[in-house]
Amino acid sequence: MLEASAVLTEGLSVRLGSTQVLEGVDLRVDCGDLYGLLGRNGAGKTTSMRAFLGLLPQSKGRCEIFGQSSTCLRDCPEPIAVALDPPGLDDTLTVRQNLELARIYGGIQGGRSVDDALQLVGLAHRAHHRGDRLSHGQGRRAAVARALLGDPRLLVLDEPLSGLDPEGVEVLIELFRRLTAEEGVTVVLSSHHLREVEAVCTRVGMIEGGKTVLEGEVAGLLAEAGDGLRVVCRDGAQAKSVLQADATVSAITSHSEGDLFVLKARWSAGSAPSTPRTVLEKLVQAGCGVEEFVRERASLVDVFQAAVREDRVGLA
């Protein structure tokens, strides 16, 4: 029998008042995934999370958590935990009391204790501070600590890295890696910090304008996107025409920096008839006055920008 996805949404749509905030979000998070939900501010990441957790009334679509409709999460076969935005700490209680309350709500007997969870996120020294006395980043960490209590099988974390210092980001990224690799926990995290997501996530989904524009394995998406070329030269028009003539080069952008022109292009390695070396030779032969030629590895930023661009072209 096939194991149910941890999270599955099909055509998820949400209308709040007269505004259609989500319109066709399709996501599939498999058990054990470390899944990154990407998108710009206001793209619909948090709303998607709230909708698939059954916290928002859905207007259309299907939504399941571990095979159970998210409208009946009380029957969900596996324990889930969330840390959404805002962190949702009760400001009248201390951090420790907030976590103890979560243990009561979750009926948690064993598993990770309050002290262990606070230790993991580096917040043990703030255990007796009230929720409203924490900084933004500490509030995030406290919410993550609360989500780690017991033995959750699915963690849904909204912008967990936002507002954290670099050390805090490292701690949490390592923690998420460990949870998925060693404990088999499924982690869904939203972020617009694409570099961190690229470093830690195995799969990503991208949301733009309230719908999914891209979803897949990080490694596959990066390979598909191909590498990038960055050319700094004196004759931008000539360089651009050379690059456009090469079948393996696409999506060229250019801008000037003083007397020089900077061109960026995608270079598809898949069925490349030419190599970066041959592209460089063509530029030199055409007398473009090449000052700098760099082959850049594709990143999620490139994938994201390309996906958003394609979505806009599609809309037009």
């Binding site: 059954g54 889930i80 959404l84 949702g88 849904v156």
Partner: peptide, 14 residues
């Protein structure tokens, strides 16, 4: 408004 109710609502409490 502060998102406090989301935690219990996702811990299998209707």
């Amino acid at each position: 408004a502060g998102g406090v109710t989301r935690d219990p609502a996702t811990r299998r409490i209707s």
